[in-house]
Every structure is written in structure tokens, then in C-alpha cells.
């Protein structure tokens, strides 16, 4: 599920922070500076970056293809590598045995830790990353952002990358109370004073 295909899921955010001068140039520059760079030759376990919402291989945004006036449509590409614990343990046992035989002594704890780190880095280079893309639509006219997922982890990744990219702008999730004060600012005091009510009618739970 996302925003553009099948049934949609839309988490809502308000864009906050002082608007930068020359907004369109600012957005274009920041998108390109924070677009996705492939993780293939690195040993990171996770990397995030902007890509086209419709083609995760497209990070060039030719002719500002993210622009769909008044919307900015982006994909947040998240590549992750997960180290399989069992494989690390097996490789470590093999390496420890080999080192013990070669050196004729038992490896110290420090040596074993170093060996484990080396194995992990070596494995990370060989494990292909898994890719997820989360759709993000920025309505620049209303100062709102829709993110096509309700996963807390994914939403946090999107909000973090948005802030990293467009600082001093940042995202504030539209939880019901904030939405309420935005919809009815004249009721702010009354909304603040509201307390939970109960429909309890004496029936035993």
C-alpha cells in the first residue's frame, strides 16, 4: 500500500519551520543533494535517500520530474542489509579454529572481537540490500505532507530524511488534537479543557 497504487494509506503531516527564500530553487537543490546513492560498495547496514516515487532507480529527476504542481512527489528509498546471526557465528567458529591451528595458541577475547567485526564487514559487502520505497507527497500550497505508510519506523525515517534535506523545515504529525486545533483555532481553549467522557451505563465488564 502507498498513495498511488491499489488501496491507499496516508499518514498526514504539517510542514513547520521558516519558509526559505527562493523556495523552488531551495527544494531542487536539497532534493538533489539528498537523493539516494547506492549502498552496493559500502558496508552500511542502512541508507536512505530520495528517488522517483514511481521508479526507485531514477534519482536524477530529469526536468524536475518530482514536480506535479502544486505537489512535490518523492520516494524515500531505504536500502537495508541484515546480518544473518547464524552465518556470522558459523564463519567466526571456522575462522577461530583456523587461526588457532595456524598460530598454535588460543585467540584472546580482543582478537576474537576483532575477527568478528572483520567477518561482519566482509559479509555486509557480500549481502545484497533489500529495497523499500515510501511515497511522500508534499502539498506546497497547503504546507502539508502525506506519507504512504502507517508504519511508525518508516514514518520516522521519512520525517528524519525530510528534516535532514529541507532544514529548517520539518514535519509535525497531524495527531487528532493538533488536527482539531488547526481545524477550529477559535475553539483552542475549549479543546484544551476537554476531558475524556464515558458511556458507562452500569453494565459489568
Amino acid at each position: 500500500m502507498g498513495i498511488f497504487k491499489g488501496t491507499a494509506t496516508v499518514s498526514r503531516y504539517k510542514v513547520d519551520g521558516p519558509p526559505p527564500p527562493d523556495f523552488l530553487e531551495f527544494v531542487d537543490r536539497r532534493i538533489r543533494a539528498n537523493c539516494f546513492v547506492p549502498i552496493d560498495d559500502a558496508t552500511e547496514q542502512m541508507r536512505t535517500g530520495w528517488c522517483s516515487a514511481h521508479d526507485f532507480l531514477d534519482t536524477r529527476f530529469a526536468y524536475a520530474s518530482y514536480a506535479l504542481d502544486p505537489f512535490i512527489v518523492l520516494g524515500l528509498r531505504v536500502d537495508t542489509r541484515k546480518l544473518p546471526t547464524a552465518v556470522v557465528r558459523r564463519e567466526l567458529s571456522l575462522e577461530i579454529r583456523r587461526a588457532n591451528e595456524d598460530q598454535g595458541r588460543v585467540l584472546s577475547r580482543h582478537d576474537r572481537e576483532e575477527l568478528k567485526e572483520k567477518i561482519a564487514l566482509d559479509l555486509l559487502r557480500r549481502i545484497p540490500p533489500t529495497t523499500h520505497v515510501y511515497e511522500l507527497v508534499w502539498d506546497t500550497a497547503k504546507g502539508e505532507v502525506l506519507i504512504g505508510t502507517d508504519s511508525r519506523t518508516a514514518r520516522d525515517l521519512c520525517a528524519d530524511h525530510f528534516k535532514r534535506s529541507f532544514d529548517p523545515l520539518y514535519l509535525v504529525p497531524q495527531v487528532p488534537y493538533l488536527l482539531a486545533t488547526a481545524l477550529l483555532p477559535q475553539y483552542a481553549a475549549a479543546l484544551d479543557a476537554l476531558r475524556p467522557a464515558s458511556l458507562y451505563r452500569g453494565e459489568v465488564a
Binding site: 488501496t7 491507499a8 494509506t9 496516508v10 499518514s11 498526514r12 502507517d150 504529525p173 497531524q174 487528532p176
Partner: peptide, 12 residues
């Protein structure tokens, strides 16, 4: 859902 009012599985 009550916590976020996020529409999920929105059929258009």
C-alpha cells in the same frame, strides 16, 4: 484508528 485517524486501506 483513533490514535492517528490515519486512513488505511483507502478504497477510492
Amino acid at each position: 484508528d483513533a490514535a492517528s485517524l490515519t486512513p488505511k486501506g483507502l478504497r477510492l
